[in-house]
Design a protein around this nucleic acid. Sequence first.
DNA 1: CCTTAGTCCTGCATGC
DNA 2: TGCATGCAGGACTAAG
Length: 269
Amino acid sequence: MPELPEVETIVRELKPRLSGKTIENIDVLWPRTVGGDMESFAHILSGKVIRDINRRGKYICFSLDNRLHLTVHLRMTGKFVFNTDEKERNHIRVIFHFNHSSPVYFVDTRKFGRMKLWLPGEELLPHLGPEPLEEKTVYPVLSNLQSRRSIKTLLLDQEILAGIGNIYADEALYKAGIHPLTAGNRVSKIKARALSRALPELLLAAVENKGTTISDYRTTDHSKGENQNYLNVYGRTGQPCYKCGTAIQRIIVNQRGSHFCPRCQRVKK
DNA sequence: CCTTAGTCCTGCATGC
DNA sequence: TGCATGCAGGACTAAG
């Protein structure tokens, strides 16, 4: 579910509440969430202090004692909450217990979320491309795409830019007036510039709105985001484009539903 | 190099 | 109401 803005929102909430806390012990209720070996996972983390919490792409990154790191990917339905209601109690996968404060629960209905430990000296998340939050870092990437894969596919490729998912890819392509099937190596400099401006604008605005809640995404206190009220194409299949009135179309690109305006976003030939 | 299908999972909406 | 199907903010793998 969560993309960069949703993960950033969660990190901003976790940071003040968990920084400086000592992990007392950990309950793993679904071993695959932590890579299978729940005993060593819990053993290594027990007694460690959380020094800092940051975001990289769609990952939450906990910095711990002794240059140890824990990364968490929420995938489709993962969330961190400080309280659980009756319904989500069945979906608790990991519980972090702290000395002298209440635990935090990792809840994940579909069990796709993953946690990984990184030992001292390991390079964290080496496969991720740059953050897409500044035009000056995004433009050099998007103006020089060599691949003939579709621009939608390339935006979802975390090695090219880190943190963009299906919603913001569609929204950015709409804002820049680019058809999702346009080949990467045929995106003009003008369009690359427009897309490089659209991505940071949309992502930062979504962070201000505390993310987009379509169904599962919630912040740590179960609140919804507000950014779903500002979407132009995602989930608006058949509804009129806000610019030209043409019905928004949905096609499958890269196995993912892709929403666009067939008039405002034409394939260039 | 690139695309497609399958996999991991559960729950919800839709249609017959 | 019951049952089948398809769909979902993600990402990895194998096969062609």
